[in-house]
Computed example of a mutant assay.
Amino acid sequence: MIEKVSYIARAAGAEIMKIYNGNSKLDAYKKLDKSPVTNADLLSHKIIMCSLRSLTPEIPVLSEEDITEWQACRDGSCFWLIDPLDGTKEFLLRNGAFTVNIAFIEYGQPIMGVVYVPAYDLLYAADNGKVWKINYRRERINIAVRTSSYPMIVMSRNDVNYDQHHLYNYLKKFKNYKIINIGSSFKFCLIAEGSVHFYPRFSCTKIWDTAAGHVIAKAAGAIINDWEGNSLHYRNINRSFLNPGFQVSSY
């Protein structure tokens, strides 16, 4: 299954890159919540939805671009949770830090996930507690979190609503650190491979933004908790589809 899902993510990413590279026309719009969406988002969504419905027709799918099956996902034991193009702002800024996210949720927990970074041809995957990345040379590399006395802290480029007081208190526990800003679920993957060590999120996110990256980081040894110390989960979902603030930590 994970190989088939990886293929689906790559297929969607290939179509995204046709638009990103200018081989196909880019159309951008604003949603009702003022967030951006492009024809690349919608094309990726169509590819993934059709593929998953063919692969597992009995399992509902919840996508950022189609929430019609959300009650079936809430009430059932399992569902697919996807973000066809996570980091649309990054896509429009042309900085490469956007991803295709596909996760499988069972009893509120993400147990399988793929994050594909099409601009860099990097694929991260986790299944049955194992995690790996496949680089642009198609080399499969096992990955794991790492610790450092000079930790790298990664934060969202667009997380502008966080409380500066909370950020100040958070950073006080580090003696030496460096902050970098990257969009999308790529942040989870960088922690999973040991390139960075902490990802604090002070504002809410949508569940499709985190699920695939969550299972990858967790399988690599990361801890993903909200600010109350509770594990991030995907059960009892409602029409807001919101996660609380959280931290991803390598130790």
Rank of each mutant, 00 (worst) to 15 (best):
F91H: 00
A126D: 03
V196F: 05
A40W: 02
S240A: 13
V160I: 10
A219P: 01
G245L: 08
N176S: 12
Q71H: 11
F186Q: 01
N142E: 15
S63K: 00
S250K: 01
Y20A: 04
E90C: 13
N236H: 14
S24R: 11
A219Q: 01
L42H: 07
T88E: 02
A9N: 01
Y120K: 11
I141Y: 10
D83V: 04
G87H: 03
E228W: 08
A40N: 06
P57D: 05
T56Q: 10
W208I: 05
Y116I: 10
L123V: 09
M112W: 00
I141R: 09
I48K: 01
I182W: 00
G108L: 03
P118V: 02
N176W: 09
A28D: 14
K175D: 14
L232M: 10
I105N: 04
S24A: 14
Q164M: 12
P36G: 05
A40V: 06
L167N: 06
V160W: 12
L52S: 01
V117E: 06
E3L: 06
E69A: 08
E64W: 03
F241R: 06
H197Y: 08
S185M: 03
R140F: 10
G213W: 03
D27L: 14
T147D: 13
M49Y: 09
K172D: 09
L92I: 15
S203E: 15
K4Y: 15
V154N: 00
D226N: 08
T68N: 11
F202K: 00
I143L: 00
Y168I: 11
E65K: 09
Q164D: 12
G245C: 11
G108W: 01
P110H: 02
P84W: 00
S149M: 13
